[in-house]
Design a protein around this nucleic acid. Structure first.
Lengths: 350, 350
DNA sequence: TTGAAAGCGCTACCAA
DNA sequence: TTGGTAGCGCTTTCAA
């Protein structure tokens, strides 16, 4: 197959090559870019034309090295799937872009070693700030971030040792609220089910909040049914079948994610258990499909837009030397049919 | 609130500061990092300790500027949602990382101007290669990429003017296959429904493939029902209600994404249309939830793993000066209940 | 309004 | 096995 790439071409244009072509100094070209007002309009136009002609793209390695500040914000997430953090990243990016900050994204895939590598890699670009999912990191990661000298915003969680600033949820409280939701509707024998990776402290916090509440209410201990695999409906179904086989009395299931809950609903159907009459189910995250299942799935909806927007705003504030802060983010329980025991099904949620 | 950030600290450690501390030249420290074998083990250990102590993080701006090659691969996607491209990015990243190439991600959000800005921004980091979704770009983007002098891999699509290499699907063929799937099951009055942004040439190609097939088969013209909004179940439901109100004869709906199809199924339920008896529905993308809906949703499953892996491999090949190539990616139709007209429902897909 | 010169932190090359 | 030197392409003074 022929080589379509325009190879063997001249090296990329530099400021100097533009300058030479126009007949000015590199300095002037640089100013035409960063402070156009200080360059004669006519000259400015000539320079712009030369840049177009030569397909000039500024070299940020050089710019960043020479300059004082970077326009790069590093964003470290644990996963890209299931809209879990996609909305956050999206909002973060669009808000930062409005202030001309560019996002560089890294994905740890829930791997602590990977997190360390990626944070190190991220910092090596000398970013203006870092946004990262969670507050529970590899100790070395905490160290690196703390000594980085740039603003750090931890997102999604805020229960723990915050490095600089945070915008997140109180997962312990959410776990308790999930349990309360089921208990109020008459479910008594609760289980927590789903994917739970070691690095995912948020899941553990929700489970703990749930257990505390059940205990306070004098209910049987919460049965834990988790596995360290990525969340997927198939995992949910498998865990659900195991759970009910070992604990037939279970009548309320809190899932670690909506995706897993989808599989749980499927599993319960296979076991001929009615939802919500026999078993109540609630998920976490309120994925798009949750209002389209049969029965529709109750869930917890974090205000993701706000996490992204607020994290960006905190970064901008910190860059202007405003004080750090810890911002709790709103969430609510979306009660749908999967936990509507004893109540008439009112049809699909709009 | 107090300031948790360790501010006012000494500037980040440099190679020189490490060198000074150990009492060697910066050069040696650099080699200790890039070619450890050329440094005495004892010295190497001392250097490593100093780096630990000073929390040294190499400055890639300087390294990239001085060195000959970059270990950065720019990845440009159109969206981060619905696992559409998340799996691809994930696979791409993990494959590249194995060769010590780091991914920098940008998200155009289906905005052509944004694409131009982001590609320019990407190139300004002097990446070793670029992977980008689609083959239909802003003309200026084509220009920039073509002149960038680095390998370019276009992903997800391959029907059009490929810049360098591609790993993707033939969307026209997929559209035809979706239509054929419905036609074979007895559906006759077809519609194409969903989100369709101007920049999303893939959707247009699938719709065109579908229309061509319907015409060849002498069926009524395919009704188009699209809107330039992001795909979401609510959009699907709204479009579905409109569609059936204006075209009551429609009995086969090809959706532009599974997410939109979820809303279509909900809309059809509200209209008291039975799926698959009255209306057949097929989506695109095979999202996780599709096997969990009632009825389960038929869809097209692209081999996303392969797109990501292959794109990474092509990049590695190109960096070793192997020839460019255009790699068609497998896909198949996952036939589930939503298009199983006249056939007994066999229960939930596993 | 423009230019000259220094230097950001690193790598590459050559010499020791 | 180590060190010296010369840049990489840009920004930042300062001077013209």
């Amino acid at each position: 197959m022929e080589d379509r790439r325009n190879d063997g071409q001249r090296p990329p244009a530099t400021l100097a090559s533009i300058a030479a072509r126009v007949g000015v100094s590199a300095n002037t070209v640089s100013r035409a870019l960063r402070a156009p007002d200080t360059v004669r309009p006519e000259l400015r136009r000539k320079i712009a034309t030369a840049m177009e002609d030569l397909n000039y793209v500024p070299n940020r390695l050089a710019g960043g090295l020479a300059g004082t500040r970077s326009d790069l914000v590093g964003v470290v997430v644990t996963s890209l799937y299931y809209s879990e953090f996609a909305t956050i990243v999206d909002r973060l990016q669009s808000t930062l872009l409005a202030s001309n900050l560019h996002v560089m994204l890294a994905n740890t895939r829930y791997d602590a070693d990977e997190e360390l590598k990626l944070v190190r890699s991220m910092l090596s670009w000398r970013p203006a700030a870092i946004a990262i999912i969670g507050v529970d990191h590899h100790p070395k990661v905490n160290d690196l971030l703390r000594h980085s000298g740039v603003p750090i915003v931890e997102m999604w969680d805020l229960d723990g040792d915050v490095i600089d600033s945070a915008a997140g949820l109180d997962h312990g409280e959410i776990g308790a609220a999930q349990a309360r939701h089921l208990i109020e509707r008459g479910y008594r024998n609760l289980a927590f089910l789903g994917s739970m990776r070691e690095i995912d402290a948020r899941a553990a916090k929700r489970a703990a909040g749930m257990r505390r509440l059940a205990e306070r209410q004098g209910l049987p201990p919460v049965v834990m049914k988790t596995r360290a695999e990525p969340g997927h409906p198939d995992l949910g179904e498998a865990l659900c079948l195991e759970l009910l086989a070992d604990n037939p009395a279970i009548d309320g299931i809190v899932c670690n994610s909506d995706t897993v809950a989808y599989g749980v609903l499927r599993g319960l159907r296979k076991l001929a258990k009615n939802v919500p009459e026999d078993v109540g189910v609630i998920g976490f995250g309120d994925a798009e499909a949750s209002a389209c299942l049969t029965p529709t799935l109750s869930s917890v909806r974090p205000d993701r837009d706000n996490i992204g927007r607020l994290s960006a705003e905190i970064i901008l504030e910190r860059l202007r030397d405003k004080p750090s802060r810890i911002a709790p983010i709103d969430w609510d329980i979306v009660a749908r049919d999967s936990s509507r025991r004893g109540m008439p099904t009112i049809g699909n949620d709009m």
